[in-house]
């Protein structure tokens, strides 16, 4: 229920904000010198001749039926356009999440095993820096370092045009893996590496910091000491006994941070000319493409809410105290 209210709020805010926008999208569509009659006809075709509340209700009615309207600048169905771009963004965000979890967990484990030694201070210092620098700047740094100074990675696009496969879904990475089309997989990863890393670094620092803190707390507990006495090595104790308990407090925070990461895809995609939702969104704003903006923003809100939902479910699944039966 609260989800529905939140989504309604998002829809309403976007709708109101963009109706306040100056600049006439219809005028931008037509060649200069089009007569007033043409403009009026087109305006009526997009429903822009009605009052704002009316427009909102019409649009909302459409959304409920799965009809998000027609993009003004691209003259295509908004739903189809957005769904076409969604997989690219989702794959990028999830790859970034995987990288962040891998880096963050590794750092947290190193910092815990080597606590109160120079290695822990090094981990803390690195975390402090990666946490302060946002994804946009990381993206720029990577473009400069690995795109220009040592050109190891491509800095724009999602896939080399020569390889662009004709797949059934937009989830190119997943589908190429399933088809064992490893050349395509490799090329996709090659293109995604820098933007994904740029998105991942700030999140990895959050994970490293919070996970290390809770690991250090757990490592003092009696059952961990008991496990040591059972003959496990320190690293086995950490993975078998401590990690699962320490993950719980980290999980909630990672959920919130992941929504920030999804939000970050907008500018990082632009930076790397990656053909996802974010790039589409910025173009839509610049073209005053009202229906498209609405559709994209609503989709982002759905992604955010879905993330929070998944985190809640994962938390319940991992915490035996919340499990029933």
């Amino acid at each position: 229920m609260t989800t529905v209210v939140t989504l309604f709020g998002v829809a309403l805010v976007v709708f109101v904000v963009i109706r306040l926008a100056p600049g006439d999208p219809i005028a931008m569509m037509l060649p200069p010198g089009a007569d007033a009659e043409d403009m009026a006809r087109l305006r009526a075709a997009y429903g822009l001749d009605r009052s704002v509340p009316e427009q909102f209700l019409i649009w909302l009615g459409g959304v409920v039926r799965g009809d998000f309207g027609t993009s003004i600048s691209l003259r295509q169905d908004v739903g189809a356009l957005v769904l076409d771009r969604l997989p690219a963004t989702l794959e990028l965000a999830l790859l970034a999440l995987a990288i962040a979890v891998a880096i963050g967990t590794t750092l947290a484990v190193i910092g815990t095993l080597r606590r109160q030694r120079p290695a822990e201070s090094a981990v803390d210092l690195w975390n402090g820096m990666t946490l302060s620098i946002p994804d946009f700047l990381w993206g720029l740094i990577f473009i400069l370092l690995f795109g220009v100074v040592v050109p190891l990675f491509p800095v724009s696009g999602r896939i080399s045009p020569a390889l662009d496969p004709d797949y059934a879904t937009g989830f190119l990475l997943v589908e190429s893996l399933l088809r064992l089309d490893l050349r395509v997989t490799g090329d996709l990863l090659h293109h995604m590496a820098l933007p994904a890393l740029a998105l991942a670094l700030p999140l990895s620092a959050v994970i490293a910091q919070v996970l290390k803190q809770s690991l250090k707390e757990v490592m003092h507990l009696d059952y961990v000491t008991l496990a040591r006495a059972k003959g496990y090595s320190e690293i086995a104790v950490l993975f078998r006994e401590a990690l699962r308990n320490a993950v719980l407090p980290t999980l909630t925070l990672v959920g919130v941070q992941f929504t920030f990461l999804i939000g970050g895809t907008v500018i990082v995609e632009k930076l790397f000319s990656y053909g996802g939702l974010g790039n589409l969104a910025i173009d839509a704003v610049i073209n005053r493409d009202l229906p498209l903006i609405q559709g994209i923003v609503l989709l982002f809100a759905v992604l955010f809410i879905a993330t929070n939902l998944i985190v809640d479910l994962a938390y319940a699944a991992l915490n035996p105290r919340l499990r029933h039966g």
Partner: peptide, 24 residues
């Protein structure tokens, strides 16, 4: 609290771009 929830459901960068586009 509800307004904060709604606000946090926007990707901030996109929201900023949108607002600036609207405000000029």
């Amino acid at each position: 609290g509800r307004v904060i929830d709604v606000w946090m459901s926007f990707p901030p960068v996109l929201f900023a771009i949108l607002l600036v586009a609207v405000l000029g």
